[in-house]
């Protein structure tokens, strides 16, 4: 096939534009990484772009020796693990029955869930409910209100629907109960979607900060996102033992922020190459109407 000169020009232009987009996407993040290894004087002089200047790892040492950072980081891990487990169990419990045509009231139940995507109680009624349940300063305030994402649940339901009925019918002949079918046949066949859902929920819980922000007042319970939030909003926070006086604090503040940001996204970056395809398939499944 012959290409016109216009199309050839366009293709050169296209590759250039896309490279610029990639650069613009990655630059702000790489700049933070470079800052995290730079000394503050170069940062203040505005000299850091993609490569550290005055290379040092002191700021990492300061943050990593701050006990509050570790406490908060560990909290995030715990909230993420517990939250993801609860989300997975609850989502499976509703997605599986809704995937069965024989379930009476299936359409009504689906609407009952989908409606919450378009209308919600709003900030204040939710706050009043959660606090009056006594969830303040408790892990439940973080993991329960966001336990079921209807969007994720619909993706799971679509996947379950596509499992051939014959497999389950054969198990019924052998005398398996619904629970037996779910655990022995459906769930083992659903490993790809369970992995996708696990990642969807885990990333969501890892990145969450607002519930902890409004429901938690004890520093020892904060997730690392609040630790970071307090740093970047300049609120009073523990800057670690490395900073002994006020001058030192303001001096290393910019580094500190950069280091904390890098450490906060590090787990996401480490799994990113593996999870990317799961996320993409998940979104594609979700787009199938059903």
């Amino acid at each position: 096939m012959k290409e016109s000169w216009q199309y050839k020009t366009f293709r050169v232009f296209n590759v250039t534009i896309l490279l610029l987009i990639v650069f613009a996407t990655l630059f702000p993040f790489f700049n933070i990484v470079a800052q995290s290894f730079s000394s503050e004087s170069y940062i203040n002089a505005g000299e850091i772009s993609l490569w550290p200047k005055g290379f040092n790892t002191e700021t990492y040492q300061v943050i990593l020796s701050d006990s509050m950072f570790w406490i908060n980081y560990k909290n995030t891990v715990v909230y993420t693990v517990v939250g993801t487990l609860i989300s997975l169990v609850l989502s499976t419990m509703i997605a599986y029955p809704l995937s069965k045509k024989r379930l009476k009231g299936r359409n009504f139940l689906t609407m009952f869930f989908v409606f919450t995507m378009f209308f919600s109680g709003g900030l204040i009624p939710n706050y009043v409910l959660i606090t009056s349940l006594g969830f303040g300063n408790k892990i439940w305030a973080i993991v329960i209100p966001s336990a079921i994402s209807v969007f994720n649940m619909l993706i799971m339901r679509t996947f379950f629907q596509n499992i051939p009925d014959e497999l389950e019918e054969a198990a019924v002949m052998d005398g398996s109960s619904t629970y037996g079918i779910l655990f022995k046949i459906v769930l083992p066949l659903s490993k790809p979607i369970l992995a996708t859902m696990m990642l969807f929920y885990a990333v969501g819980h890892w990145n969450s900060w607002f519930p902890a922000f409004i429901y938690f007042s004890e520093k020892e319970l904060f997730p690392v996102s609040i630790y970071l939030r307090n740093l970047i909003k300049g609120a009073e926070a523990s800057y670690g033992t490395g900073a002994t006086n006020a001058d030192n604090i303001t001096q290393i503040a910019s580094n500190i922020k950069a280091v904390t940001m890098v450490l906060t996204v590090l787990p996401i970056l480490l799994v990113y190459p593996y999870i990317q395809k799961y996320f993409v398939t998940g979104v594609m499944l979700g787009s199938v109407k059903g």
């Binding site: 996407t25 990655l26 700049n31 505005g46 996102s225 970047i232 922020k257 996204v265 996320f279």
Partner: peptide, 25 residues
Amino acid sequence: SYLPHFFSVVVVAGIVFEFVAINGP
């Protein structure tokens, strides 16, 4: 291009602050 989608909004805000800071890039 997908990468920033996976960042926490707190990290994104932090990146924005640093990027447009008076001594930022």
